[in-house]
């Protein structure tokens, strides 16, 4: 179970196969070391659940989300046109992604530009796999009964009204879910959205991720779960600056599921 090959779309097509699902990895998932382990967990979950999937590999390019939210509509639409040409070229119908920003922009903003796909966030996809019995978790895993809180990514929750899928995944882990004082539609941002990830914050009296970390600490949860690589970075930094790394883990949903299903390499 330790090694398997993640096929690219080009390879699949060359073999005359066309996968059901395209796994859109995203920039963070491709390049950021921490996010890469989330990507690997998602790939392993898809493989384990026998989902026919492929990635674009080097043919994938930024969706244009940070450019658009920073005001550069030209750059966004150029990126979108390029990605849509690739996706339509491969006849992609169904996309699953580990990044809520990619999810939102492909789901809501690509259709008008010619890219109409059924797009799912990995929490939604995993929730379905579990409910369909395609993914079974070990009887005994480290998250069973653990006190866990979920940080709603803005572009999954408020942006697209999805609050239940990630929670149903946590429920499947048989963990003790505790909500933060601001959760679901009232969830506080981690501070990375709107291209903030790529710049210094404006002058203020606190960092947004530190504020959000206070909400986490208040729940006395042992794990704060994210569904977004940027939230993950922000919460990891927040927990670090609060000197709570010993007591609070920052995990993506996919990592926890992969651990609980015993499919991660040692």
């Amino acid at each position: 179970m330790n090694t398997f090959r993640v096929p690219t779309m080009a390879e699949m097509i060359a073999e005359g196969k066309s996968p059901e699902v395209l796994f859109w990895v995203g920039c963070a998932g491709s390049f950021d070391d921490r996010a890469k382990s989330i990507t690997k967990a998602i790939a392993r979950i898809l493989h384990h659940a026998k989902v026919s999937f492929a990635v674009l590999g080097s043919e994938e390019s930024c969706t244009g989300d940070p450019a658009k939210r920073a005001g550069n509509e030209f750059l966004f639409q150029m990126q979108a046109a390029q990605n849509i040409a690739v996706l339509n070229g491969y006849g992609v119908k169904k996309i699953v992604t580990g990044c809520p920003h990619c999810f939102n922009i492909m789901k809501n903003e690509y259709p008008e530009l010619g890219g109409d796909y059924s797009v799912q966030h990995h929490s939604q996809f995993i929730a379905t796999l579990i409910s369909e019995g395609k993914l079974t978790l070990a009887d005994d895993h480290p998250y069973k009964g653990r006190r866990i809180t979920f940080h709603d990514p803005c572009y999954l929750g408020r942006g697209n009204g999805e609050y239940d899928a990630p929670r149903s995944v946590i429920e499947a882990l048989d963990a003790e879910l505790v909500e933060m004082r601001n959760c679901k539609s009232k969830g506080l941002c981690c501070g990375a959205g709107g291209a903030q990830m790529f710049k210094e914050a404006e002058k203020g009296d606190k960092e947004i991720n530190d504020k959000r970390t206070e909400d986490v600490i208040e729940t006395s949860a042992k794990v704060v779960v994210t569904g977004c690589p940027f939230c993950n970075t922000m919460m990891t930094d927040g927990v670090k600056s609060a000197e709570k790394t010993e007591s609070i883990d920052v995990k993506d949903l996919a990592e926890m599921i992969a651990t609980a299903a015993n499919i991660l390499p040692e």
Binding site: C27, S30, A43, S58, A67
Partner: peptide
């Protein structure tokens, strides 16, 4: 400035960071 850098990176290598596009699939 850092936003300009982000734009340049997306234009040049299709990611907000300065990683070569060819290495996008390296995690595989």
């Amino acid at each position: 400035d850092s936003i300009t850098t982000m734009f340049n990176n997306i234009e040049n290598n299709g990611a907000p960071w300065a990683f070569p596009a060819a290495s996008r699939g390296d995690w595989i």
